[in-house]
Amino acid sequence: MTSQAEVYLQDFHRRRAGATRRAFGNLPARSTHAEYPSSYHALAKRVPNDGMSRTELDLACGDGPLLQILNDRRNAGTKLIGLDMSEGELSAARAVLPPDVRLINERAQELSLDTDSVDYVLSHMALMLMDDIEQVIREIRRVLREGGSFSAVVGRAFLTEEVGEVFLDVFKPIAKANLTHLPLGDARTRSETGWSELLQHCFVNVAFENIEIDWTPTPEQLWLDMLDTYDADRMSEATRAQFKGELLSAFAPMQREDGTLKTGWGLRLVQASAA
């Protein structure tokens, strides 16, 4: 059964395909170990670039930014597969990816891929939104070969620094008065403890790495990016106008000399090997 959350997500990504790429595709990312052109590159780095032939699956691939990075460096024997439940996102991906990248329109809970057929499963900013995450994990393990690798970038902190605190001070009362609850994902995907619990039966060598993304938008730029978020999208026009006005007013005294705000995103890289 398609849940209320999945119906909404499919509709959102039909109307706003590429939202995740727009948010993260051009922002440099860093960890304690390395710096990357983006969080997509940080995830792609989990696959060795050594010329060996592999099958690599991008789970919830969106409009294909991670697949583009993987495709740019693959050798002739590497197979790339992208899977997403949004036909809108896949249509956008088909427009930019070569025809030999296989794109599949289906849910992560019911993969059509053969058992033991994939060497690497990757996922960028998607697993924390999925229904029945335990079944998703089982399917990931089923399609992975023994010793295969699972890596995912998931959310950790939304709008860092004081900007995030001010954002929530404005958002919470507006959301409480105007938005119905939309259950998105499993709370366990928001912590290392939760991920350890989810992966313990099917995976070994579970490891975590924090990824920081610095972002210095103007208040207006930040607002435009908020239009690509689920909460702002679900607001009525009147509520959205109220939210924008209160948010820009609250941000005005926080602007630096160049007119920008100092904020960013905290992400978490989850890695494990198939037992």
Rank of each mutant, 00 (worst) to 15 (best):
Q4G: 01
A5N: 05
Y8D: 05
L9K: 08
Q10N: 14
H13K: 03
R21G: 12
A23H: 10
T32N: 12
T32E: 14
E35A: 13
E35L: 11
Y36A: 10
V47N: 14
N49M: 14
M52V: 10
S53M: 07
D63C: 09
D63M: 10
L66W: 06
Q68F: 01
I69K: 04
I69F: 01
N71E: 08
N75C: 10
A76Y: 01
G77D: 03
T78K: 00
K79N: 06
L80Q: 10
L80V: 03
L83P: 00
D84I: 10
D84W: 10
D84L: 11
M85S: 13
P98T: 11
D100P: 01
R102T: 13
I104T: 13
D116R: 13
V121S: 02
A126L: 08
A126F: 00
L127Y: 09
L127K: 08
V136N: 02
V136H: 04
I137V: 14
E139R: 07
I140C: 13
R141G: 15
R145V: 06
R145D: 09
E146A: 14
G147S: 10
G147Q: 09
G148C: 06
S149P: 01
V154Q: 09
R156G: 05
R156P: 02
E161W: 02
E165K: 12
E165M: 07
L168K: 08
D169E: 03
D169W: 07
I174C: 00
A175Y: 01
K176H: 08
N178I: 02
L179D: 07
P183T: 13
A187H: 03
R188D: 12
T189N: 09
T189G: 07
S196I: 07
L199R: 12
L199E: 12
H201F: 13
H201A: 15
C202F: 15
F203Y: 15
F203E: 15
V204C: 14
N205D: 15
N205A: 11
F208C: 10
N210M: 13
I211N: 11
E212G: 15
I213K: 07
W215R: 03
T218W: 00
L222S: 02
L224W: 03
D228F: 02
R234L: 02
R240Y: 00
R240D: 00
A241M: 00
K244W: 02
S249R: 12
A250V: 00
F251L: 14
M254P: 06
E257C: 02
G264Q: 04
W265F: 14
W265G: 09
G266Y: 10
R268Q: 11
R268I: 11
L269I: 12
S273Q: 15
A275H: 15
A275Y: 15
